[in-house]
Design a protein around this nucleic acid. Sequence first.
DNA 1: GGTAAACATGAGCAAAAGCTCACGTTATAA
DNA 2: TTATAACGTGAGCTTTTGCTCATGTTTACC
Lengths: 243, 243
Amino acid sequence: MFTRETLPAQGVRGYVGRMETSPQRRRDPVQARSRARVDTILDAADAVFLELGFAEATTNHVAARAQTSIGSLYRFFPDKDALLVALAERYGARMQALASQLTPMDPEGATLRGLISDGIDGFSAFLLANPGFVTLIHQARHPALTAGRRAQEGQMAALIGGLSAKLAPQLSAEEVSVIGEVAQTVLSALQTLAHIHDDARSREATLAEAKLMMTLYLSRRLGVPEDVPLASLGGGDTGQRGA
Amino acid sequence: MFTRETLPAQGVRGYVGRMETSPQRRRDPVQARSRARVDTILDAADAVFLELGFAEATTNHVAARAQTSIGSLYRFFPDKDALLVALAERYGARMQALASQLTPMDPEGATLRGLISDGIDGFSAFLLANPGFVTLIHQARHPALTAGRRAQEGQMAALIGGLSAKLAPQLSAEEVSVIGEVAQTVLSALQTLAHIHDDARSREATLAEAKLMMTLYLSRRLGVPEDVPLASLGGGDTGQRGA
DNA sequence: GGTAAACATGAGCAAAAGCTCACGTTATAA
DNA sequence: TTATAACGTGAGCTTTTGCTCATGTTTACC
């Protein structure tokens, strides 16, 4: 006979109802085998949530799609919500990578319009490659996500807020915050709208409107002309030349 | 003994699984008593969906909140989705009333900025009085709603599209459609954002940004100045003077 | 007032979904 | 080689939830 595995300290008690506590992994994978399995499960969850929506999807669906047993799923994810949280974390990392990738080489040579256009195109390409992310955005209000959301979706707002603060130092912190929130909301909504359409033509048409709207708004709100290289403006420093 | 009620023609068969067909009322109420009950149930559904979200809410929750029996609920609503559909219809009617109320007395005397400001304020007041509507908007992608959605949420898009076509007759039908869709999406998203905040101050701050953004966008896109009375423009006819 | 419909009730059924656990397999380390 | 821990499995248990239906009450109409 073999020894029974000692359960992790964090109170996995008998079955007394839904677990309402920490939606974390029940047990972190340590071998390469299981690490790959966790990734496979997340991929499956992503696909299933996209197809059925989070509410309709079941853990058994996900396990089946991942070609693994339901027991393996529950070994690493305490409940269905944990799948959502883990997915959000994974997308958060990808978003971070996208953000740094979209930071232009020569920010001072770029115009406001150019920055916005590149940003929207970049995010659109990201959505095209990660269709499940739209589903995740749609679930942003899920209670399990409220904690991690700041680090994920608010990232875009922070990026825009940072840009705003640099280009328009006269704005108060509160104004900057509102502008970032508003811009992030509009971008998210219009990207979602754009990617509802399957054909590239109407998607591009919607994205063009998004670019126009954001350019007009930020130009006015930050007091920055649309088509003038940011370097030639007297305002603030737009690049991080130092450390 | 009393005669068993003859079941309505539309196939209410034995219990062979979930009903996947028409999410309509199983039986329309004919007496005042039951008509009031249907309203009470809808009010309860509205409140419960707002509190728990549609996915988490159960029909038993709704019945309990309405202080009625689960049987009565199912007498008038074939399934949970039907509650959502009925709610959407009820809000659709209210939205229609709002739309006609927001149609200004003197459209030609108004400026573009004024029209937008009044529209946003009016819709904001509507959301304040109907907090459940936000939840409904969030469920807009629910399969059961796709049919009725056009008549409900698209109403705003149609309104804006109509305005666009009048003020800028040079635009193609497709352009008008995109503009309406985009404007409606942005307005909906920003109103939702505004009403997440409980305090009136930050709500107003967000709405001010929404007004600015919409004014800039529509002004540029339609080629109409922001602060000039629409009557003084050479363009199209802005009022329906005739029948 | 009598009768037939409409209306109302709630215990409880059937299915679905979340999740467990006893058992079996693979990797690791001594 | 062998002991131990990590990993993997899936039948099936428990709970939830959508929904029914046998029974009882109110309203409408003659």
